[in-house]
């Protein structure tokens, strides 16, 4: 298998962010998508804690502890940025004003169900944040994740076994091995990461990959 690096995966997702979009990047890996946006596109990134227009990380020594993104990284405001409170922030999401959200996931099912907030381990406190609000309000939900778990078990399933974040909400999945669209018939192959065969990727996927 030939696996894309995290940064190559972020760059692949960035290709599909159109000029002029309002985009919410989930915490973790999706945060890196903005660094790979192709030149010539202007995109405003929403951070759910109250910033529309997330700019680059400031130089060391210039950090403002009261200017952070949802991943709690120090950031700067981009040109055209705005600050707002939580009720406005979630009105942007639920109200359908944000165009695209890029989220991480534990599991995605072939009907577009997403599980990314809780596992089955009861000792481990669940943490939902804004994920459930995003998936009901943002029309295009892109998932960015490794194709399989660390133990090799599949993450692209017929049915999610973990508690759901949203039902039938995922539009497209980007993994280190493939890009797949969620269609009414199931996962449909968009492309394989260079150096991989469909048979090898299918073997690591519980759900059937349509071509």
């Amino acid at each position: 298998m030939k696996s894309l690096s995290d940064s190559a995966l972020a760059a692949r997702v960035a290709q599909d962010i159109p000029d002029g979009s309002y985009v919410n990047l989930g915490i973790g890996k999706p945060t890196h998508v903005s660094a790979h946006l192709p030149e010539g596109r202007e995109v405003l990134y929403q951070s759910e804690n109250g910033l529309l227009g997330v700019g680059p990380v400031p130089p060391t020594g210039a950090e403002d502890p009261e200017l952070i993104d949802a991943s709690k990284r120090f950031v700067t405001p981009a040109t055209g940025a705005a600050y707002f409170d939580q009720t406005d922030s979630f009105a942007m999401m639920r109200g359908g004003h944000i165009d695209i959200a890029v989220l991480g996931a534990y599991q995605v099912a072939e009907n577009g169900d997403l599980a990314n907030w809780a596992t089955l381990d009861e000792k481990y406190p669940p943490a939902v944040g804004g994920a459930m609000d995003l998936v009901v309000g943002v029309p295009t939900i892109l998932v960015m994740m490794r194709h399989v778990n660390r133990d090799g078990s599949p993450k692209l399933l017929k049915t999610c076994s973990f508690p759901l974040t949203g039902l039938g909400v995922v539009s497209r999945v980007y993994t280190d091995l493939a890009v797949l669209d969620v269609t009414p018939a199931g996962f449909r192959l968009v492309e394989l990461a260079p150096g991989n065969s469909l048979d090898a990727v299918q073997a690591l996927t519980e759900a059937t990959i349509l071509t």
């Binding site: 409170d85 939580q86 406190p125 669940p126 939902v128 994920a131 459930m132 609000d133």
Partner: peptide, 14 residues
Amino acid sequence: LEVVPQGTLAERIR
């Protein structure tokens, strides 16, 4: 612990 989605938390307070 009561976990509430972030937007629902804000709106319940509002």
